[in-house]
Design a protein around this nucleic acid. Structure first.
Lengths: 191, 191, 191, 191
DNA sequence: GATGAATGAGCGTTCATTCAT
DNA sequence: CATGAATGAACGCTCATTCAT
């Protein structure tokens, strides 16, 4: 097994176990066993459990961002871009429930607070294209002139809640409902 | 110290420590110390830590519901009632950050999933008046004809996200912003 | 409730709970509840749990001795007295399974060692008439000339084992089997 | 220290402490300390304290069975085989007092009830050769036609009681007394 | 005298991390 | 490098005993 494969096996095992049992319900020993490596080996790739958790998040977050940008055309109108991104986000979550649950758990933990503080609000948030879109939208008077944080809340709040409830089986989000949901979000931020 | 006082001291200590450090970061021994009681004493009032957590939630949830209904007039139009409830919700959270963080943490845990399944989606959700409001709104064709779960997501998603970001200091939610936020939520659910 | 009644209620509750769950599985609080008294009250009658356990044993042991002597005629031949005592012992245990299980548990615990050392082997063992019987039997050359301890073992060993197995349901000890068992014991000690 | 050594050290420490203080008086922490290992280490070898207790019993029971069969000749007459087995049993207990006290304690606990139910009375009791011997003895009309359970009681009852009293110092069981005791047991079961 | 709420030492068990092999 | 056995502090919880009422 190549060195990067082993790292991926560990991350995969961590994803599965943490998704299923939570951060505290997924001991390093169990992750190691599921990954087919020794417990000590994990510490050659990740200095602490916290770092493993954070790096797994970053990996998943990067994958998500790549997905969102697939087919994204920066020259389209704000509204079209918003609908594209948001529908892509929902579709990604619905087809990747494990990734969604991990990301959600991470955001809802103390880790997540730091992440939002660092990446979204300060500089460095350019990778998630929503920020650019909101800033453009405001300057073009297409989007309400509200603080970025509130625009994020109006967008991600419903999208994450809907994705979660679909994954939990509280609602069956077919393509029609998905599109309606995304449209509703747009109504809340559009000028 | 009277018996009910001691129970309240324990709940207060649990609220503070769990808010600050999470469920897993708040050992019974620490809660007992902060409450000024012996560790064993807690078990006279709460059979297990899980039950303490759940009863604290229920207490805070009841307080929240009382607050929402303060000044609520059921005969007002749908929109006015929605704006009233949602503004009250946001104001309560902003003035009760500890309570908010506890409720949020609870909802984001496995406990919360059960709660939503039992109380909001099945019968028994009558105490939170949003459900009545949505159902009336749909039948009057004032609110979009979407599944209840999605209307909940469109409402609570942004509100909770905004409250959280205000409490974390990411945005300063003054009365003007609060009203704008609530109005934006209304746009997303209105017909 | 008179003071002696309360004491008896406590002993009765202790008998029931200890028989069912063992010394360690019968907390003072549970005994108090079953007895219908406060936990602290028990300590007015028994200085410690150990003393409660010991006094309950002594009470049951006295009752047992009284029973054995019922209809006992000291002037009968050794063999007849042995058969009478032993059958009475078995019958008492079979009809008083709770008392049996308590006595057995007590004898099999560190408490029991002290008891045998003190009461049976040294002076003071006159209340259980077996000792007199064995000593007479040896001097009359009707009983084997073996140390008292061994005669006790040859007698009580099988009787207690048979009583236990009957109570546990491993054998149904009717009057015929009971008499055969006692007779078999006599064969092992008779000259 | 090799891996099997460590397991043996733990079993040895458990044997010593449980023999001395009982199941409840021998905390895992104390067993670990006496064994010279960390408390957590015990759980690598035994999933729970109960399992440690049971496996120690099985180990001691196996050793005992091996001992009994040493020099045992299945083609000898019933009586000779009984005397051989029973004398070997007594000798083993007298020379292994700690093992005896552990086995006795185990048999007198709820664990022991299950053991007797499963191994001795149902099928699977073939390892302890007493059962075969009794069944043969009955069919040859050399042994009284009594239920197996009673024959066991008539045999093990006295033997265990005598061994216990020897170990406690209540009687000094030299070879002469040992043989007399075993012979007395035979008298109680022989036709 | 009677109560039962309060105590806190002690229990069995878990698990992130280390380190000899 | 990789391992997984070993660690021990920390956890949730129990219960014999005390003592203010």
């Amino acid at each position: 097994m190549a060195i990067t494969e082993k790292r991926q096996e560990i991350l995969k095992a961590a994803l599965e176990l943490i998704t299923e049992h939570g951060f505290h319900g997924a001991p390093i020993a169990a992750i190691a066993q599921r990954a087919g490596v020794g417990a000590g080996t994990i510490y050659r790739y990740f200095a602490t459990k916290d770092i493993l958790i954070t790096e797994l998040f970053e990996e998943l977050h990067d994958q998500l961002c790549l997905h969102l940008l697939d087919g994204y055309e920066a020259q389209q109108p704000i509204r079209a871009r918003f609908l594209h991104l948001s529908a892509a986000l929902l579709r990604y979550f619905i087809t990747h429930p494990q990734e969604f649950r991990y990301l959600e758990q991470y955001f809802n933990s103390p880790y997540g607070v730091e992440f939002r503080r660092d990446k979204i609000l300060k500089n460095g948030g350019e990778r998630l294209p929503y920020r650019v879109l909101f800033e453009e939208g405001i300057s073009q008077q297409v989007v309400r002139d509200l603080p970025l944080v509130i625009l994020f809340a109006l967008t991600f709040g419903p999208l994450l809640a809907v994705a979660r409830d679909h994954i939990l089986g509280f609602v069956a989000l077919d393509e029609r409902l998905l599109v309606l949901t995304v449209a509703a979000c747009w109504e809340s931020i559009k000028q």
